[in-house]
């Protein structure tokens, strides 16, 4: 990124006027704002997080549904992700039950997607001649979405900072054209650029507020709920109801509400997993149920938009 732009954006106290190098590493919120600017300038819609619980930014309809059919699409957004089983009561410096992903989707995937991505690393202050950036094979598959793609995990000095995927199928449908998906792990990236070993020590802003100040209570209480307190009978019931409602919406040819109910069922399933009440044998059946609903919603979306399969 141009030194002048950085200077204009962050001021002389935070970046070098000659070469634009950050004097103070980006805070968590400036990291997000910088990525927003970067991708906005490259033609992406900056859409907002989806207002439902989900395990990954991919579940946002701005990725899943928009990856279907022939229409071009470019979007970027932050998505809060909940993974109940990864919660550690705030005691593990690297693991969280709730965290943020920065998601970029470009369809059709442009020929210079790798260059665009590397440009975003430069924008947040990672110099590729000082840090070792590598594209290491990592194929992506989401059994609950009936989706898969090929790509890499991007390493920065041995740390995985981004998942880079070319979607081949979503909801069981071939992706034509192909969507390129970039998923940045925001906390990891921030820990990396700020040189922090503990996620709770991250500078959230430049006024002394840490990530822990904002989220420690959340991690502690949500871990306790996910692992100990959640009423499993009620959750099993909710799963059934969400699944039934998804079917209901499919019958009514309402793909978006159907998809929302599928996401809801998926998250309830994740919580039940954390409570340890789903056996290995049952697990596949639950995943299969969610996949069928998600595929149904994708198919209904294709129909509603008049896309040929």
């Amino acid at each position: 990124m141009n030194a002048l732009v950085r200077l204009w954006r962050f001021g002389q106290s935070r970046c070098n006027a000659d070469n634009g190098e950050y004097l103070v590493p980006l805070s968590f919120q400036d990291l997000i704002l910088t990525l927003h600017h970067y991708w906005s300038e490259r033609g992406c819609l900056i859409v907002q997080p989806y207002d439902m619980e989900m395990g990954a930014g991919t579940f946002h309809p701005a990725t899943v549904l928009r990856a279907l059919g022939p229409d071009a699409w470019k979007a970027a957004y932050v998505q809060p992700c909940r993974r109940p089983t990864d919660g550690r009561y705030g005691e593990n410096p690297n693991r969280l039950g709730h965290y943020y992903q920065y998601q970029v989707v470009l369809k059709p995937s442009p020929a210079d997607l790798q260059q665009l991505y590397l440009g975003s690393l430069d924008a947040i202050g990672i110099d590729p001649l000082k840090h070792d950036i590598r594209f290491v094979e990592d194929d992506w598959e989401s059994p609950t979405l009936g989706a898969w793609g090929l790509g890499w995990e991007v390493w920065c000095d041995g740390m995985e900072v981004t998942q880079f995927t070319y979607f081949q199928q979503v909801g069981g449908f071939e992706c034509k054209p192909v969507t390129g998906e970039l998923t940045y792990g925001l906390e990891r990236l921030a820990m990396y650029i700020q040189g922090k070993d503990n996620v709770f020590d991250l500078a959230f802003n430049n006024e002394g507020v840490t990530y822990g100040d904002v989220f420690m209570d959340n991690e502690q209480q949500m871990s306790a709920w996910n692992f100990e307190t959640a009423n499993t009978d009620a959750l099993f019931d909710l799963f059934k109801k969400a699944a039934a409602e998804a079917e209901n919406c499919l019958t009514a040819k309402l793909p978006i509400p159907a998809y929302e109910q599928a996401i809801k069922a998926s998250h309830i399933f994740n919580t039940l997993q954390a409570r340890g009440v789903i056996s290995v044998a049952e697990r596949q059946a639950y995943i299969g149920r969610v996949r069928d609903l998600a595929k149904g919603a994708c198919g209904a979306w294709m129909d509603a938009k008049g896309y040929a399969a």
Binding site: H131, R134, G158
Partner: peptide, 23 residues
């Protein structure tokens, strides 16, 4: 095994990798 001749002789790369390994 890095893929670049780093400006700083690899100091930042080694430090980054050390932290990942420590985690």
């Amino acid at each position: 095994t890095a893929n670049i001749d780093a400006k700083d002789g690899g100091e930042a790369i080694v430090e980054g990798n050390r932290r990942v390994l420590a985690a």
